[in-house]
Amino acid sequence: MLDDRARMEAAKKEKVEQILAEFQLQEEDLKKVMRRMQKEMDRGLRLETHEEASVKMLPTYVRSTPEGSEVGDFLSLDLGGTNFRVMLVKVGEGEEGQWSVKTKHQMYSIPEDAMTGTAEMLFDYISECISDFLDKHQMKHKKLPLGFTFSFPVRHEDIDKGILLNWTKGFKASGAEGNNVVGLLRDAIKRRGDFEMDVVAMVNDTVATMISCYYEDHQCEVGMIVGTGCNACYMEEMQNVELVEGDEGRMCVNTEWGAFGDSGELDEFLLEYDRLVDESSANPGQQLYEKLIGGKYMGELVRLVLLRLVDENLLFHGEASEQLRTRGAFETRFVSQVESDTGDRKQIYNILSTLGLRPSTTDCDIVRRACESVSTRAAHMCSAGLAGVINRMRESRSEDVMRITVGVDGSVYKLHPSFKERFHASVRRLTPSCEITFIESEEGSGRGAALVSAVACKKACMLGQ
């Protein structure tokens, strides 16, 4: 009897593995994704193909990295998701002549009506938060230079001027797309009239992360975010950046690689679950690469896999709870928690219980395998993109072996128990001629924006502006 049951459990697990095998990517698959990513990057950089390229390769006008001589107080704003952060950054000489960066910050959550109302409502709310922060720190009387981390696709015309191309991540505030974001912020500050600010720089969160990590390690020339969304930036040779005049030196390019796949480059790798996630998203047909990796989508992918296993009578005796059938019910943090389970399955059992399920031991094991399959594919897909960037940098610099540091931020990278190990191992397999160091950014977005502002202020002083 026991043997029969054991055989049935083994057969069930084997069927589960057959279904989950769809998520496995072979090294040849990853090399294919990497080569296609490089081709799209090239198209994004070139003037004649930029418009139709899915990977936009947006110039950021960040050319210099901090040298350690900029000092002063800077205000930093960070808008990239449902939370908005205001930070005071003091850049100065530390002990023994070292450079020191001290920060104080406060988080504000953005109400739904500000995210989806008008641009005026959104930026009025942001300036209200700045006003509140300055009151708390008794700094209303000071006109501070301000660095703005704005983590949406922007076409820069200068370091302090950028046109919002399109909202992502659930934002829909009308009247912002096609307009200068810094102008919208300046107008809102003017409307309030109770404080003055000098907006000197606007950067993407990947750029802010790279600059913040450069402060720790001067070989950091790539910034990457794996959180709600997924994106990367890197220092490109100016001669390859056709959208900006000049051939000397390097400029940081914001790849906006989340949109890779929007022209069909990933079609052969998309599964039924991916198509369902895409169809029910706020932007169907867009940001397809990001939807395979980002935390906004990972939990939902797992939920759809679990429903398939229920329908195949391989999980929960073929019956799903009402909660499990509800879109968004299986949160991405559950994926991390399930994979963090120590082996007694308590954590998995508790999560499934909150979803109205009474799982068996085998159910718990199957749910864990589903989570591992989805998150491992995410790590491997992400590795193909980064390997594409790094191999490109090595080739354009004609280096036999390139040493490089990548600064990384984002909740999936930082909080998932195995993502970074799987990701690092896969990147290294795909970049055999590179020695890569990964560092995690601390308060990256805010500190990085302030350091970019410090560079901009120093330049302005040198130019006598």
Rank of each mutant, 00 (worst) to 15 (best):
Met8Trp: 13
Ala10Ile: 15
Lys12Gly: 12
Gln26Ile: 13
Lys31Gln: 06
Glu48Ser: 15
Thr49Phe: 05
Lys56Gln: 04
Val62Met: 00
Ser64Leu: 10
Pro66Leu: 08
Leu75Glu: 00
Asp78Phe: 12
Gly94Lys: 04
Lys102Tyr: 13
Ala114His: 14
Gly117Pro: 06
Thr118Asp: 09
Glu120Met: 13
Ile126Met: 07
Ile130Met: 10
Ile130Trp: 06
Lys136Phe: 08
Pro145Glu: 02
Pro145Val: 02
Phe152Ile: 08
Val154Asp: 11
Leu164Cys: 11
Leu165Val: 09
Asn180Glu: 15
Val181Leu: 09
Gly183Trp: 02
Ala188Leu: 01
Lys190Cys: 14
Phe195Cys: 03
Phe195His: 04
Glu196Ile: 03
Val203His: 00
Asn204Arg: 09
Ala208Leu: 01
Thr209Met: 01
Val222Gln: 00
Val222Tyr: 00
Ile225Trp: 02
Val226Cys: 03
Val226Lys: 00
Asn240Gly: 01
Val241Trp: 02
Val241Ser: 01
Gly246Glu: 03
Asp247Tyr: 06
Arg250Trp: 11
Cys252Trp: 00
Glu256Ser: 13
Trp257Met: 05
Glu265Tyr: 02
Leu276Ser: 09
Leu288Glu: 15
Leu288Phe: 14
Glu290Ser: 14
Glu290Ile: 06
Tyr297Asn: 05
Met298Leu: 14
Gly299Ser: 07
Glu300Asp: 02
Glu300Leu: 01
Arg308Asn: 03
Glu319Thr: 07
Ala320Ser: 11
Gln323Thr: 13
Phe330Ala: 03
Thr332Asn: 10
Ser336Tyr: 11
Glu339Ala: 03
Gly343Tyr: 01
Arg345Asp: 13
Leu355Phe: 05
Leu355Lys: 05
Thr361Gln: 15
Thr362Tyr: 09
Val367Phe: 04
Arg368Asp: 06
Thr376Asp: 09
Thr376Met: 03
His380Ala: 12
Ala384Gly: 06
Glu399Ser: 11
Asp400Ser: 07
Val401Cys: 07
Met402Val: 05
Lys414Ser: 12
Phe419Tyr: 06
Lys420Asp: 11
Ala425Thr: 15
Ala425Trp: 13
Ser433Leu: 12
Cys434Gly: 05
Thr437Gly: 06
Phe438Ala: 02
Gly448Phe: 12
Ala450Gln: 15
Leu451Pro: 06
Leu451Gln: 15
Ser453Phe: 14
Ala456Trp: 08
Leu463Thr: 10
Gly464Ala: 11
